Simulated assay, not measured.
Amino acid sequence: MRPHTSILWRRLELEGHDACLLSEADDGWKLRGHALFVHNGKPCSLAYEADCDSGWRTRSARVDGFLGAETLHFEIERLADGGWTLNGAGQAEVAGLIDVDLGFTPATN
C-alpha cells in the first residue's frame, strides 16, 4: 500500500477527534482511522478500516472499540451478488447499495 493522504478532524458539536490515513492499494483504496469522542455522556473509542475497489465501491469495513464499558466489534462485507453481511448475518434491507457510511466519522461521507 502506498500512503496517499492523512487528516485530523476536531469535532465541533461534542468533545472529540478523528484521524485517518487513506492509502492506495494495487486493486483499490484502504482507509484506516481512529475516532475518540463522547457519545451519550460516555467515552467512545472506535478504530475503523474500509476497503474499496478502484471505483470507490466499498468491499468491506470493520469497526472495533468501546462505548463506556461496552466492547464493540462490527465486520461489514459486500458480497459478489450485491448483498451485505454484518458480523456474518445477511442484511437484506441494504442489498444493492455500493457504499458504507460510518456515521461517527466524516472519512466515509
Rank of each mutant, 00 (worst) to 15 (best):
L97R: 11
F66D: 13
E70G: 03
L86N: 08
N87Q: 09
G65R: 00
D81S: 12
G90F: 03
T85S: 06
G82Y: 07
L97Q: 11
D101S: 10
T85Y: 03
A69I: 14
D81E: 15
A95W: 02
G96C: 07
I76A: 08
L79N: 14
F74C: 10
E93K: 02
S60P: 04
E77C: 12
L72D: 04
A69C: 11
G88F: 00
L102N: 03
G96D: 06
D101M: 07
E75G: 08
T71R: 12
G65D: 00
G88W: 01
D64I: 02
E93M: 02
G82W: 08
E70C: 07
D81I: 12
T85K: 05
D101I: 06
D64Y: 00
G82R: 05
E70T: 09
A69L: 15
G90W: 01
E93H: 05
G88E: 01
R62V: 07
A80W: 05
W84P: 03
D101L: 08
I76L: 15
V63Q: 02
G88V: 00
T85M: 04
H73L: 11
D101N: 12
L102F: 12
A95Y: 03
V63F: 02
A69R: 12
S60E: 12
N87K: 04
Q91F: 01
R78I: 14
F66G: 13
A61S: 15
E77Y: 07
G82N: 10
A80F: 05
A89K: 06
L67V: 15
R78C: 14
Q91K: 06
A95S: 10
H73E: 14
W84Y: 04
R62L: 13
L79R: 13
V100L: 11
R78F: 12
A95H: 09
I98N: 12
L72C: 09
F74L: 14
G65K: 00
G88H: 01
D81F: 11
F66Q: 15
F104N: 01
F74K: 04
A89T: 03
V100W: 07
L72G: 01
N87D: 15
E93I: 01
I76E: 05
D101F: 04
A69G: 13
D101A: 10
E70M: 10
F104I: 04
A61Y: 07
G90K: 04
A69E: 15
E75C: 12
F66P: 02
E70D: 13
A89R: 04
E75A: 15
N87L: 07
S60H: 03
G103F: 03
D81K: 07
D64E: 10
